[in-house]
């Protein structure tokens, strides 16, 4: 009995401890971001790696999600004679939920895993120790630009995803199924409010980006310095970040309504 209790206690303690470590790591990143030099060149490269290279994937996914949404919702709505509301349904679901969440998951797989693998490989080949020996803080030099870039590109990619999605649903609804273009656009514009939907979407994407940046860099920075460790850390980034994005999405949605 005491053995069972002891293992429960040990697990709880290690959970709290790892949470504390990751929060402290986040604090170090924030401190590094505020301290000079600004490392703008590295930030730019990280934006290129995480953002620019994800654009094609995000836009193509947005377009296909929009196409499918248009088809599915049109068929369902037409049973009630409410095809006109396609713009409303597509706009609200894309802007509030699908855009930020799916972009978050896509970028986790595309750029978050790469970030972890890159930092993990640097650690495995003792490059981070090399930086420390030259009195260069690896958090400032390697981690901060990548974490910051993930947080910055997420709202931009999410907005691109949503615009592509709206266009995809337009293609299906208006061009293919014969809905009136004006009615699609005007229902979309009447239903979507800036504060209620668009701001919520941007804030969500920003929070997802920060979570992903923190998790991806933390996993890479703390991985075991060997090939198996890097591989485990990369997998763990994708799993942890995806679950965190989905959970925080629920919390953010619930908080926004209050």
């Amino acid at each position: 009995m005491t053995g069972w209790l002891r293992s429960l206690g040990a697990q709880t303690l290690s959970l709290v401890e790892s949470l504390g470590r990751i929060v402290r790591f986040g604090g170090l990143i924030v401190r590094a971001a505020l301290l000079p030099p600004a490392r703008l060149r590295f930030l730019l490269w990280a934006v290129y790696d995480s953002g620019v290279l994800s654009t094609a994937l995000v836009c193509a996914s947005g377009l296909t999600v929009g196409l499918v949404l248009g088809l599915q919702l049109y068929n369902t709505l037409s049973r009630f004679g409410a095809e006109e509301s396609l713009g409303t349904a597509v706009g609200l679901s894309l802007i509030r939920e699908l855009g930020p969440v799916l972009t978050g998951l896509l970028v986790t797989g595309r750029a978050g895993s790469a970030t972890t693998a890159e930092i993990g490989a640097m650690k495995a080949t003792e490059q981070l120790d090399g930086l420390r020996m030259m009195a260069v803080d690896p958090i400032h030099f390697v981690v901060m630009p990548r974490a910051l870039a993930l947080a910055l590109v997420m709202p931009l990619l999410s907005a691109l995803f949503i615009v592509c999605g709206i266009f995809g649903a337009y293609l299906v609804g208006v061009q293919l199924l014969g809905l009136d273009a004006g009615s699609y656009i005007s229902h979309l514009e009447n239903a979507v409010d800036f504060r209620e939907s668009v701001l919520q979407s941007i804030v969500k994407a920003g929070v997802f980006g920060m979570l992903l940046g923190l998790i991806a860099t933390y996993r890479g920075y703390t991985c075991e310095p060997n090939a198996a460790g890097v591989s485990r850390a990369t997998t763990s980034t994708v799993v942890t970040a995806s679950v965190c994005i989905l959970l925080s999405d629920y919390v953010l949605t619930a908080l926004w309504g209050v």
Binding site: T55, P155, L156, L157, A159, I162, V192, V198, S201, I202
Partner: peptide, 15 residues
């Protein structure tokens, strides 16, 4: 491009 998408969503769609 990203900022243009946000601006389109905010001003045109979001009013």
């Amino acid at each position: 491009l990203g900022l243009a998408a946000i601006a389109y969503l905010s001003v045109q769609v979001g009013g």
